[in-house]
Design a protein around this nucleic acid. Sequence first.
DNA 1: ATGGTCGTTGCACGA
Length: 269
Amino acid sequence: MGAGVGGCRLPAVLRIVTWNVNSLKARLPRVEEWLAGNAPEIVCLQETKMADGAFPAGAFEALGYEAVHHGQGQWNGVAILSKVGVADVVAGWDDGGPVDTDARVLWATCGDVRVASVYVPNGRALDDPHYVYKLGWLERLRATLERREDPAGQVAVCGDYNICPDDRDVWSPEAWVGNTHVSEPERDALRAIEAWGLEDVFRRHHEEGGLYSFWDYRGGDFHQGRGLRIDLILATSALAARSTDAVVDRNARKGQKPSDHAPVIATFS
DNA sequence: ATGGTCGTTGCACGA
């Protein structure tokens, strides 16, 4: 597909995936298997946990993907894989602000979509300095969108936001009171990003709650249904208007050596 | 969830 006549190389259907793989080194066999079976056009990965020199670009090339990676070593790390081209790559912040040694954001234009793969800081605890870093990081992302991107264009900001947009996205809102991922400042920061002109594509297709993308490895959380929806595909209205469906592939959370996150897949016509 | 596991790298910490 995509090799049509008349010079049109864009596929009729576009699927955008976001997946926190929790170490691409540990996860490569699972990721390769999943890509071979699903073959989405654009994939945003987070927590690759490797340096750029260790990134297995050849494995993705063999599956038909052009790949770009922004890593730092053993923590963080984000990547974009594309069957529809990669252009205008921006790794990290380009706003001239303070140096951020964490590799958490990567941009590329893939076909007709401007794509970001983001790994928002966890925050750790409401009284932890890392929580302040998280809120500042989200504001920096919002300011980058405002300064550099076009809200009237087709933009997808995909990744692990480490925020549950609302209580429908939390297995037990009561158990999470006082924790990160659900606090009002975090949700306000996410809403401020959306207010620039982005929509939660999965929510567009699923008003119901109880559908999650992350389950802690501990305590059998996956089998107990104790999950969070923190992996989001945010799209501008021009792109969201093309969306026909969005799903979480829970099967990828099963079996041997799964990531603690499942891939989220949005389909566009 | 008081913890529970799995990833990193070492013999603890991050998610």
